[in-house]
Design a protein around this nucleic acid. Structure first.
Lengths: 233, 233
DNA sequence: CCAAAAGTGTTTTCTCTACACCCATGT
DNA sequence: ACATGGGTGTAGAGAAAACACTTTTGG
């Protein structure tokens, strides 16, 4: 082997699994698009695109997310890379999946609509192209494991949220009921939530106290060996 | 967008983080090679190579591992993909990292030597090229998380092993002492080990009973909702 | 008979689970 | 005054942690 010139080159893409939580309907959703080019034009697909000359994979994923939704500064993390020879019938494409977490309300609704994108409940997805179903399945499993062990659930909620809303989020992710008292005891005992002097009054007469995630507190605890853990009954 | 033709193409590689456990010395090692081509010829590197036209990423990783060590049928799993624009000074290369688990004694020693490869203790690694140090760091963290939650530790041991050896393996991975009685109680209570009527007599006069991992038993338990868990004190 | 490593149980502490009623308020 | 959703504590079971001595056998 002398140098790199004799080796083949391939198209390299990223595909984004964009999770959004619908706090009103209490369901976890995925942002999907109708593909605008061949092959499989018009089919449902994850948001994706090819990696440009001057950008890293991470940057490509951020660019695609931003173009579609108008948001940046979102929790986004790399999942697997899919490289089967025939995964895309158009050409050999190596695609790295990323998944992102956001609240649905944070999204620029007009932009999403203009891009032909739609939110779909994770347990009622349309048929997706290529190996995108595998990507989604893997990302969902990753997410379920991740929220147990890192405080990323808050990324799916607005900055201020009630404990009821937080619990509903976990119930939506796990697809399972959680005991209210145990959940509150556990999450509050971690000392990473801050209670505000303000109530959410839309959904009940009594109102529910707002809380915020205190990231500095979490980081400090984490450095001192504390580990976030939210296995739920 | 009409088709794929106007998008750039890149070299695509895989790099293998090959973990080996030295059961005699009780240390976790990595198989490293001296790079045989420019750039950075002669430097220490992970085993890697470019992906061929007719092979998937997984197949490329298996091929590279097999060529270097002579072994197949090894536990190997995909880690992250590294795609910074300047990660390889020779050209833009997108590289997917894989990590593999094996016992050092299972390896074809001659083949390894002929390939200029060497086993190095994970806590005494030489300077590695490019972003390979990041890859190693990430793979090590992945491994530590993985062995807690999946019975992959056995992949690093010979088929027959003693409980002492199993414990020493976990101590090497975690870099931490474990209580003997609690460890044995926990692992045996899972019911996935099979005691053989045979003792290992090299390391003590009394001898220690050999055990084997019973994979079918594990898979059955796993299907029934049991989850492997080995958080150690 | 002794050195060296293997093997073995019990008590205490902590964490997890199950479970039901009172509170605040808008209408 | 009542309907609606928010908020709270405790007892019992089970898991994790701490801990020290006995067994075997080759030399």
């Amino acid at each position: 082997m002398k140098n790199y010139s004799k080796y083949p080159k391939y198209l390299v893409a990223v595909d984004c699994i964009i999770f959004g939580y619908d706090i009103q309907k209490k369901i976890l959703k995925l942002l999907l698009v109708k593909r605008s080019f061949e092959p499989a034009k018009g089919s449902w697909s994850l948001a994706g695109g090819f990696v440009k000359e001057k950008e890293s994979l991470d940057e490509a994923a951020s660019r695609i997310l931003r173009k579609l939704t108008g948001i940046s500064n979102v929790y986004m993390t790399q999942s697997l890379t899919y490289g089967d020879t025939d995964r895309d019938p158009g050409a050999r494409v190596i695609s790295t999946a990323y998944y992102a977490l956001t609240g649905i309300s944070a999204i620029d609704y007009e932009l999403v609509k203009d891009n032909g994108a739609h939110w779909r409940s994770v347990d009622d997805l349309p048929k997706l192209i290529f190996d995108h179903p595998r990507m989604v399945k893997k990302a969902l499993a990753d997410l379920q494991n991740l929220v147990k062990v890192k405080p990323v659930g808050f990324e799916l909620l607005p900055e201020k949220f009630t404990l009821v809303q937080l619990q509903e989020l976990y119930e939506a992710i796990y697809q399972k009921r959680i005991d209210k008292r145990n959940f509150r005891k556990k999450i509050l005992s971690m000392g990473i939530l801050e209670k505000l002097e303000e109530k959410e009054k839309e959904t009940s007469k009594k109102g529910a106290w707002y809380y915020m995630f205190n990231e500095e507190r979490y980081l400090k605890l984490d450095r001192n060996g504390f580990s976030f853990n939210l296995d739920v009954s």
